Simulated scan of single mutants.
Amino acid sequence: MYLITGATGNVGGELTRALIAAGEPVRALVRRAGAAVPEGAEPVVGDLNRPESLTGALRGVRGIFLLPGYDDMPGMLARAGEAGVRHVVLLSGGSAALEDMGNAVSRYMTLSERAVRASGLAWTFLRARAFMSNALRWLPQLREGDVVRVPFPGVRAACVDPFDIAAVAARALTGDGHDGRVHELTGPESLLPAEQVAVLARVLGRDLRFVGLSDEEARAYLEARMPREYVDAFFGFNVDGTLDESRVHPDVERILGRPARTFDQWATTHATAFA
């Protein structure tokens, strides 16, 4: 049995479907009864911030796909070990390598990795770069018109398709050779936001216009959507240049035996979401 956290999200949902397609038993952790999970998964209610709520979820589980950043990661992992869990595949990010405790994103990524390392369980870290699915954040703008306003217009990123992250996670959970490994997951190309918008325009058949926000505009835009400590974190990455996500890594292709999916492929697959 495999326990998937975030099974209703972009990566967890793809992973749940991949494991079920491979004939593996999957338990999907949800916070409330009745939450929709991929067909074939066993939903189970629990809260990663309350390790005592996970007793039923952990029963009979051999491997966990774990999201980062919860309050009591050591307590949750201790319960997992007591329940007989053998392997944790942690979704992490490139900022974990910075170990910057003054940056809110780097801090929770770093502390999550440290907790997993200290747990005594076998582990695999998936340091995924920016998700291609982040483009879905532009949906409200696209519903209003053809202008897409984006923060940090000069910052390139080798964005990765959640489908590929999930495929690597499935290999790590069910295969050999991944224990104690850190996989750096990117797409096959490094794109500017304007280049992503141009791909969307072609795929959607729309005459989209890209507008890059100034730093002042970007701060106002982000502070309306997330806590200030995370806004400061992204300014550290993208304005101060503490994190470079433009480098393309070969890990997806090496592990899956095929090229990583392009942003064009992602956009084509998800075009109906923008309709």
Rank of each mutant, 00 (worst) to 15 (best):
I4Q: 01
T5C: 04
T8N: 07
G9L: 05
G9Q: 10
L15F: 03
T16L: 10
T16W: 03
P25I: 02
R31H: 12
A33V: 11
A33S: 15
G34S: 08
A35C: 01
A35Y: 00
A35D: 03
A36P: 00
A36W: 00
V37T: 12
V37Y: 01
V37R: 09
P38S: 02
A41L: 04
V44N: 00
V45Y: 03
P51V: 15
E52F: 04
S53Y: 06
L54W: 13
A57N: 01
A57V: 04
G63V: 00
I64G: 05
F65D: 05
L67P: 00
P68F: 14
G69C: 09
G69N: 07
G69R: 05
Y70V: 14
D71M: 10
D71W: 07
L77D: 07
R79S: 14
A80P: 02
A80K: 01
A83N: 02
A83K: 02
V85S: 03
V85W: 00
R86L: 12
L90N: 07
G94L: 15
G94F: 09
S95K: 05
S95H: 05
E99S: 14
D100L: 02
G102Y: 03
G102K: 12
N103L: 07
A104S: 15
A104I: 04
M109N: 14
T110C: 03
S112W: 08
S112C: 08
A115V: 11
V116F: 12
W123S: 11
W123Q: 11
T124A: 14
R127T: 07
A130G: 01
A130E: 08
M132Y: 05
N134A: 08
L136K: 13
Q141K: 12
L142E: 04
R143S: 10
E144V: 08
V147L: 09
V150S: 01
P153T: 09
P153N: 10
D161W: 11
I165E: 07
A166S: 12
V168N: 05
A169F: 03
G177K: 06
H178P: 06
R181Y: 05
V182M: 08
H183W: 15
L191Q: 06
E195S: 04
R206K: 04
R209Y: 00
V211R: 11
S214Q: 15
R219P: 11
E223V: 08
A224K: 13
R228L: 03
V231R: 10
A233V: 09
A233G: 11
F235M: 13
G236W: 04
G241P: 08
G241H: 05
L243C: 08
E245Y: 09
L256I: 12
R258Q: 15
W266D: 01
A267C: 06
A267H: 09
T268K: 13
T269Y: 03
H270E: 09
A271D: 13
A271S: 14
A273C: 12
